[in-house]
Amino acid sequence: MKMKLGDDLHEVKIIARRPHLVVSIDGRHHTIDDPGRECDGPGTLVLDGAAVSFARVSSGGSVLLHLDGRAIAVEVIDPLDEAEGSGHGRDEILAPMPGAVVQVHKAAGAAVTRGEAVLTIESMKLQTTLVAPRAGTLLAVLKGAGDTFEKDEVVARLAPVEGDQ
C-alpha cells in the first residue's frame, strides 16, 4: 500500500503481525510494539526498541501525528483511487511485486465491478488479491495459476471504456 507522510509518498507493507508488528517502509523493516491503540490522543509505542511518545488526531481520511515536535499528516492512498486517476492504470492490472499466481477469480470476457477480485498472487509467502481498478469487462487475463511474473508486469487488462481510445 502507499502512504503519504507529509508531502512524501512511501511504500508500506506489513511483514508480520505477531509476536510484534513488523512493517517495511520503502524497503526498511521496523518493529513496533504496542501499536494496537487506534483512538485519538496521546500515547507511547516502542519503535525498533526505543520508546516514542506521540499524539494522534483523526481528520477525515487522514491522521495527524505529533511526533518529536513536528506535526505529520498521514494519509493511506487507496490503490483503487490511485489506479483510477492514472491513464493506463484504469485498463491494466499490474503486479505490485514479483511472484506467482495462486488463483484466477475471473476469466477474459467476465464483467467486473470496481474492487472485485481478479487474481490472487503470492510473493515471499504473502498472498495478495489483485482487484479491478474500475467496473468493466475483462479483455484478457494474461497469467494463469502457477504462472510467474515480475514487478509492474501487466497481469490482466480491462476493455477500454467507450470514447477513451
Rank of each mutant, 00 (worst) to 15 (best):
K4D: 06
L5V: 08
L5Q: 09
H10W: 00
K13W: 12
I15G: 03
R17F: 05
R17V: 12
R18T: 09
P19G: 05
L21G: 15
V22Y: 01
V22G: 03
I25D: 08
G27N: 02
H30Q: 05
H30C: 08
T31V: 07
T31R: 07
D33K: 07
D34S: 14
G36I: 11
P42R: 00
L45Q: 02
G49R: 01
G49K: 04
V52F: 13
V52C: 14
V52E: 12
S53K: 08
A55N: 15
A55I: 12
R56W: 11
S59P: 03
G61Y: 11
G61A: 15
L65F: 13
D68L: 09
D68K: 07
R70M: 01
I72N: 13
I72W: 13
A73G: 10
V74F: 00
I77N: 05
P79Q: 08
P79H: 09
E82F: 13
A83R: 02
G87S: 12
H88F: 09
H88G: 14
D91Q: 09
P98R: 14
V101E: 05
Q103V: 15
Q103K: 14
K106N: 11
A108H: 04
R114N: 04
I121D: 03
L126Q: 10
Q127N: 03
Q127M: 07
A132Y: 03
A132E: 04
R134P: 08
R134Q: 05
A135M: 14
A135W: 15
T137D: 10
L139I: 08
A140K: 06
L142N: 04
K143D: 02
K143V: 02
F149K: 15
F149V: 07
D152A: 09
D152C: 04
D152P: 04
V155H: 00
R157N: 10
A159Q: 13
A159E: 15
A159N: 11
P160E: 14
D164T: 15
Q165K: 07
